[in-house]
Structure formats: structure tokens, C-alpha cells
Nucleic acid binder design. Structure first.
Length: 217
DNA sequence: TAGGCCATCTGGTCCT
DNA sequence: AGGACCAGATGGCCTA
């Protein structure tokens, strides 16, 4: 984006020290009403974390006079902007949590980081798409999965378990996940149909590498 | 203790 | 004018 400006007005100029000294819990500088007003229509049930020290998670920092305490329109605008930004990031984190929830479950205490979640999701979607493609090649694509294979977004993992064998007319398609580490996991997809091309095991990666260059089964 | 991750503040830019 | 989005900066927490 744009380079940072270095010519802010004196009253708002941000030296490192100034920024540091300005950080303290929003509760101390943001009227409750304003924090609520900053929310959009979908924020009421957003579980806001306890307000913490600015720039950190502890409340043990001192709270010297900061920009937040400035009076005047500019200070109020900045406070409202901070509230909106905080809310925006909370919404972003909620979306990431929702994404984590539909990815194969991780072992306890192995929550994916943000970047790992995005990379894992990308590779997982790709692997599922490959699975469908292979099943299609072997003539084992149930109707309910025979959607447009070029559109991975139309495939939801929940669907694997959502149709009974009788409904689908095929062996049950299922998956089991095992993790070698947070960075690498294998996903075994199989059916009970003996003649099927399954089981197939995909190796997922959460790291930087492109799954399409490294995957195997 | 260093490094990774995270939440938050902040100012700039773009859009409505 | 105000809101959304973005990236830089900063400090706290956690772990190897």
C-alpha cells in the first residue's frame, strides 16, 4: 500500500515512544456507548474478549495520558475508528474460526495459526477436488457429489457423511484424518465398495509448499 | 532468551 | 465526511 507518512501534525505525530505511551485499555478511553455504536448489525453476539492492555494482553501497564484522552472531534473520531477496527478484526477472527471448524479436526491443543488455517484450507479443498476427480474417473461418483468438479467451493466436507449408502446407491464414503504434525497430516478416504479405487490417502501440508507440487496418494 | 503469534492502535488511502 | 481496508508498529504471552 502507501508508504507511511512521516509528516503528521505535531499533535498526532507518532514516534515509537508516543505510540507506546498511548496504549492502554480501550475501556479507559472509549465510552461504552461508543464501542457499542461502532458495531455493525452483526456484532451483538460477537464474544468480545476482555479488553486488555493496548498492544498486549495484560492490563498491568501504566496508562499515561494518551491520544485517546484528547478532547475534541479528532480524538473522538480516532476512538471510533479504533472501535471499528477492533470489531473488524474480531469479525475476521470469527471467520477464521468458522473455517477451522469445518477443516478436519486437529488433535487437542493443536489449533492452527491463521496462516496455517488458510494454507490448510486451500490444500484440503484441492485434495477433496482431486478425490472427486478420481472417483469420477473410476465411475464411483455418487450423484450427490457429481457436481461441477471445476468448482471446489461447491463441495462441503460434511456431505461425505450426510448421505446413507442406500440413498447414494454406493458404498459409504468416509474419511479419517491422522496427523504427523501440525504441519503435515494425512487424510484417508475410502469406501466399503471393494471394487472402488479407494482407499486413497492424501497428505496435506499446512506449510508454505504448494500441495499440488508435493501431494501423493 | 529469542522468535513466533497475536491483539491493538494508528495514519494513509480509497470508496460511498 | 465518514467508514472500510490496509500495513506498520508495538508490547504481551508462550514455547523451544
Amino acid at each position: 500500500m502507501s508508504p507511511k507518512a512521516t509528516c503528521a501534525p505535531d499533535d498526532l505525530r507518532t514516534s515509537r515512544d508516543a505510540v507506546t505511551l498511548s496504549r492502554f485499555p480501550p475501556t479507559l478511553c472509549s465510552p461504552v456507548k461508543e464501542a457499542g455504536d461502532a458495531s455493525g448489525p452483526s456484532n451483538e453476539n460477537l464474544p468480545l474478549k476482555p479488553l486488555t492492555a493496548v498492544g498486549g494482553k495484560s492490563s498491568s501497564v501504566k496508562h499515561p495520558k494518551s491520544r485517546c484522552e484528547q478532547s475534541g472531534q479528532r480524538g473522538r473520531r480516532r476512538m471510533k475508528a479504533n472501535d471499528r477496527e477492533r470489531l473488524r478484526m474480531h469479525n475476521l477472527n470469527s471467520a477464521l474460526d468458522a473455517l477451522r471448524s469445518i477443516l478436519p479436526a486437529l488433535p487437542e491443543d493443536a489449533k492452527l495459526t491463521k496462516i496455517e488455517t488458510l494454507r490448510f484450507a486451500r490444500n484440503y479443498i484441492w485434495a477433496l477436488t482431486e478425490t472427486l476427480r478420481m472417483a469420477d474417473q473410476h465411475g464411483h461418483t455418487p450423484d450427490y457429489l457429481a457436481s461441477d468438479l471445476s468448482s471446489p467451493a461447491s463441495v462441503f466436507s460434511a456431505e461425505w457423511d450426510s448421505v446413507s449408502p442406500a440413498e447414494a446407491g454406493y458404498g459409504t464414503t468416509d474419511q479419517s484424518i491422522s496427523y504427523k504434525s501440525v504441519d503435515e497430516a494425512s487424510c484417508k478416504l475410502f469406501t466399503r465398495d471393494e471394487s472402488s479405487a479407494f482407499p486413497v490417502t492424501f497428505y496435506f501440508k499446512c506449510g508454505e509448499s504448494d500441495l499440488r507440487n508435493t501431494w501423493h496418494y
